[in-house]
Protein backbone atom coordinates (compact mmCIF):
# COMPACT_ATOMS: atom_id res chain seq x y z
CA UNK A 1 0.00 0.00 0.00
CA UNK A 2 2.87 2.33 0.61
CA UNK A 3 4.86 3.56 -2.27
CA UNK A 4 3.95 2.60 -5.82
CA UNK A 5 7.21 4.04 -6.98
CA UNK A 6 5.48 7.05 -8.61
CA UNK A 7 6.50 10.70 -8.12
CA UNK A 8 4.50 12.73 -5.63
CA UNK A 9 1.65 14.74 -7.14
CA UNK A 10 0.52 18.29 -6.25
CA UNK A 11 -3.30 18.32 -6.39
CA UNK A 12 -4.77 21.75 -7.06
CA UNK A 13 -8.47 22.33 -6.35
CA UNK A 14 -9.87 25.75 -7.40
CA UNK A 15 -13.07 26.63 -9.22
CA UNK A 16 -11.37 29.39 -11.21
CA UNK A 17 -9.92 28.05 -14.47
CA UNK A 18 -7.33 30.85 -14.83
CA UNK A 19 -5.99 30.17 -11.36
CA UNK A 20 -5.87 26.41 -12.06
CA UNK A 21 -3.94 26.85 -15.28
CA UNK A 22 -1.53 29.40 -13.80
CA UNK A 23 -0.81 27.32 -10.70
CA UNK A 24 -0.44 24.23 -12.84
CA UNK A 25 2.18 25.94 -15.00
CA UNK A 26 3.95 27.45 -11.99
CA UNK A 27 4.18 24.16 -10.14
CA UNK A 28 5.30 22.29 -13.25
CA UNK A 29 7.93 24.99 -13.82
CA UNK A 30 9.38 23.98 -10.46
CA UNK A 31 9.66 20.40 -11.75
CA UNK A 32 6.74 18.96 -9.86
CA UNK A 33 3.83 16.87 -11.05
CA UNK A 34 0.41 18.60 -10.96
CA UNK A 35 -3.20 17.54 -11.25
CA UNK A 36 -5.99 20.12 -11.14
CA UNK A 37 -9.66 19.80 -10.21
CA UNK A 38 -12.44 22.39 -10.60
CA UNK A 39 -14.33 21.23 -7.52
CA UNK A 40 -13.93 19.43 -4.23
CA UNK A 41 -16.33 16.77 -5.38
CA UNK A 42 -14.26 16.04 -8.53
CA UNK A 43 -11.14 15.68 -6.39
CA UNK A 44 -12.77 13.26 -3.93
CA UNK A 45 -14.02 11.20 -6.84
CA UNK A 46 -10.58 10.84 -8.32
CA UNK A 47 -8.27 10.78 -5.32
CA UNK A 48 -6.54 7.56 -4.30
CA UNK A 49 -4.71 7.59 -0.97
CA UNK A 50 -1.92 5.47 -2.44
CA UNK A 51 -0.65 8.41 -4.41
CA UNK A 52 1.89 10.50 -2.55
CA UNK A 53 1.47 14.22 -2.74
CA UNK A 54 -0.21 17.27 -1.25
CA UNK A 55 -3.34 19.34 -1.77
CA UNK A 56 -3.49 23.02 -2.70
CA UNK A 57 -7.04 24.02 -1.94
CA UNK A 58 -9.09 27.20 -2.33
CA UNK A 59 -11.26 27.98 0.69
CA UNK A 60 -14.12 29.60 -1.17
CA UNK A 61 -15.71 27.57 -3.94
CA UNK A 62 -19.20 27.01 -5.20
CA UNK A 63 -20.52 23.65 -4.14
CA UNK A 64 -18.41 22.02 -1.45
CA UNK A 65 -15.97 24.61 -0.14
CA UNK A 66 -12.39 24.06 1.02
CA UNK A 67 -13.28 23.80 4.70
CA UNK A 68 -15.82 21.12 4.07
CA UNK A 69 -13.44 19.12 1.89
CA UNK A 70 -10.82 19.24 4.63
CA UNK A 71 -13.37 17.93 7.11
CA UNK A 72 -14.45 15.21 4.68
CA UNK A 73 -10.84 14.03 4.20
CA UNK A 74 -10.44 13.90 7.98
CA UNK A 75 -13.63 11.87 8.30
CA UNK A 76 -12.40 9.42 5.67
CA UNK A 77 -9.06 8.97 7.46
CA UNK A 78 -7.07 10.54 4.63
CA UNK A 79 -4.25 12.70 5.92
CA UNK A 80 -2.92 14.26 2.77
CA UNK A 81 -1.20 17.57 3.71
CA UNK A 82 -3.28 20.58 2.80
CA UNK A 83 -2.25 24.11 1.79
CA UNK A 84 -5.17 26.55 1.92
CA UNK A 85 -5.55 29.47 -0.45
CA UNK A 86 -7.79 32.32 0.59
CA UNK A 87 -9.12 35.49 -0.96
CA UNK A 88 -9.21 38.62 1.14
CA UNK A 89 -11.32 38.50 4.19
CA UNK A 90 -11.30 34.73 4.63
CA UNK A 91 -8.54 34.97 7.20
CA UNK A 92 -10.59 33.72 10.14
CA UNK A 93 -11.56 30.68 8.09
CA UNK A 94 -7.94 30.04 7.07
CA UNK A 95 -6.90 30.18 10.71
CA UNK A 96 -9.52 27.60 11.49
CA UNK A 97 -8.17 25.43 8.65
CA UNK A 98 -4.68 25.55 10.11
CA UNK A 99 -6.05 24.66 13.52
CA UNK A 100 -7.57 21.61 11.88
CA UNK A 101 -4.20 20.51 10.51
CA UNK A 102 -3.56 22.44 7.30
CA UNK A 103 0.14 23.18 6.62
CA UNK A 104 -0.49 26.89 6.07
CA UNK A 105 -2.71 29.36 4.28
CA UNK A 106 -1.73 31.70 1.50
CA UNK A 107 -3.56 34.89 0.71
CA UNK A 108 -4.15 35.42 -3.00
CA UNK A 109 -2.32 36.69 -4.99
CA UNK A 110 0.77 35.10 -3.49
CA UNK A 111 4.43 34.88 -4.32
CA UNK A 112 5.73 31.76 -6.15
CA UNK A 113 8.43 31.28 -3.54
CA UNK A 114 5.91 31.16 -0.73
CA UNK A 115 3.77 28.61 -2.55
CA UNK A 116 6.62 26.38 -3.64
CA UNK A 117 8.16 26.40 -0.15
CA UNK A 118 4.85 25.26 1.35
CA UNK A 119 4.48 22.60 -1.34
CA UNK A 120 7.94 21.21 -0.66
CA UNK A 121 7.20 21.28 3.03
CA UNK A 122 3.94 19.43 2.47
CA UNK A 123 5.53 16.82 0.23
CA UNK A 124 8.24 16.21 2.80
CA UNK A 125 5.63 15.76 5.48
CA UNK A 126 3.71 13.37 3.28
CA UNK A 127 6.88 11.39 2.52
CA UNK A 128 7.73 11.19 6.22
CA UNK A 129 4.23 10.05 7.05
CA UNK A 130 4.41 7.41 4.36
CA UNK A 131 7.80 6.14 5.72
CA UNK A 132 6.34 6.00 9.20
CA UNK A 133 3.34 4.22 7.90
CA UNK A 134 5.66 1.76 6.13
CA UNK A 135 7.57 1.11 9.35
CA UNK A 136 4.36 0.62 11.22
CA UNK A 137 3.28 -1.90 8.63
CA UNK A 138 6.66 -3.74 8.78
CA UNK A 139 6.65 -4.11 12.55
CA UNK A 140 2.99 -5.08 12.54
CA UNK A 141 3.80 -7.88 10.10
CA UNK A 142 6.72 -9.07 12.22
CA UNK A 143 4.72 -8.94 15.45
CA UNK A 144 2.03 -10.93 13.74
CA UNK A 145 4.48 -13.81 13.33
CA UNK A 146 4.85 -14.31 17.12
CA UNK A 147 2.96 -17.12 18.82
CA UNK A 148 0.62 -16.23 21.65
CA UNK A 149 3.08 -17.43 24.30
CA UNK A 150 5.94 -15.54 22.61
CA UNK A 151 3.81 -12.40 22.56
CA UNK A 152 3.08 -12.85 26.26
CA UNK A 153 6.77 -13.18 27.05
CA UNK A 154 7.53 -10.10 24.88
CA UNK A 155 4.88 -7.93 26.58
CA UNK A 156 6.28 -8.86 30.03
CA UNK A 157 9.83 -8.06 28.83
CA UNK A 158 8.61 -4.67 27.52
CA UNK A 159 6.95 -4.13 30.90
CA UNK A 160 10.44 -4.49 32.44
CA UNK A 161 10.34 -8.01 34.01
CA UNK A 162 13.36 -10.30 34.25
CA UNK A 163 13.41 -13.98 33.14
CA UNK A 164 12.91 -15.25 36.66
CA UNK A 165 9.83 -13.08 37.28
CA UNK A 166 8.36 -14.04 33.89
CA UNK A 167 8.87 -17.77 34.58
CA UNK A 168 7.19 -17.38 37.94
CA UNK A 169 4.28 -15.34 36.53
CA UNK A 170 3.64 -17.62 33.57
CA UNK A 171 4.35 -20.88 35.52
CA UNK A 172 7.15 -21.84 33.17
CA UNK A 173 10.77 -22.92 33.72
CA UNK A 174 13.45 -20.28 33.29
CA UNK A 175 14.81 -22.34 30.42
CA UNK A 176 11.53 -22.26 28.52
CA UNK A 177 11.32 -18.48 28.99
CA UNK A 178 14.87 -18.16 27.61
CA UNK A 179 13.88 -20.15 24.49
CA UNK A 180 10.73 -17.95 23.93
CA UNK A 181 12.80 -14.76 24.30
CA UNK A 182 15.32 -16.03 21.69
CA UNK A 183 12.46 -16.80 19.25
CA UNK A 184 10.91 -13.35 19.75
CA UNK A 185 14.21 -11.59 19.06
CA UNK A 186 14.83 -13.73 16.03
CA UNK A 187 11.35 -13.21 14.56
CA UNK A 188 11.40 -9.42 15.13
CA UNK A 189 15.00 -9.13 13.93
CA UNK A 190 16.21 -7.26 16.98
CA UNK A 191 19.55 -7.84 18.55
CA UNK A 192 19.15 -6.55 22.10
CA UNK A 193 16.49 -6.50 24.78
CA UNK A 194 16.73 -2.65 24.70
CA UNK A 195 15.78 -2.65 21.02
CA UNK A 196 12.98 -5.11 21.69
CA UNK A 197 11.57 -2.80 24.37
CA UNK A 198 11.66 0.23 21.93
CA UNK A 199 9.81 -1.77 19.23
CA UNK A 200 7.32 -3.04 21.74
CA UNK A 201 6.61 0.46 23.06
CA UNK A 202 6.23 1.99 19.56
CA UNK A 203 4.30 -0.71 17.77
CA UNK A 204 3.35 -3.35 20.32
CA UNK A 205 -0.07 -2.07 21.18
CA UNK A 206 -1.55 -4.78 18.98
CA UNK A 207 -3.32 -7.99 19.96
CA UNK A 208 -2.32 -9.22 23.39
CA UNK A 209 -0.73 -5.90 24.17
CA UNK A 210 -0.75 -4.60 27.81
Amino acid sequence: MADRGGRPVVFVVDDDEGVRKALSLLIRSAGLEVRTFDSAEAFLEDYSPGVAGCLVLDVKMTGMDGMTLQEELWNRGLDIPVIMMTGHGDVPMAVKAVQRGAIDFLQKPFDDQALLERIHQALALDARRRVEAGERALWAARLARLSAREREVMDLLVAGMGNKEIALKLGLSRKTVDIHRAHVMLKLGVESVAELVRVGLLHGSGPGGG
Binding site: D16, A22, K108, P109
Partner: peptide, 12 residues
Protein backbone atom coordinates in the same frame (compact mmCIF):
# COMPACT_ATOMS: atom_id res chain seq x y z
CA UNK B 1 -8.76 35.36 -8.92
CA UNK B 2 -7.45 36.69 -12.24
CA UNK B 3 -4.79 38.68 -10.38
CA UNK B 4 -3.71 35.52 -8.68
CA UNK B 5 -3.57 33.79 -12.06
CA UNK B 6 -1.56 36.65 -13.59
CA UNK B 7 1.01 36.55 -10.81
CA UNK B 8 1.33 32.78 -11.06
CA UNK B 9 1.58 32.84 -14.85
CA UNK B 10 4.23 35.56 -14.80
CA UNK B 11 6.28 33.79 -12.19
CA UNK B 12 5.96 30.46 -13.99
Amino acid sequence: QPLCAIVAFAQA
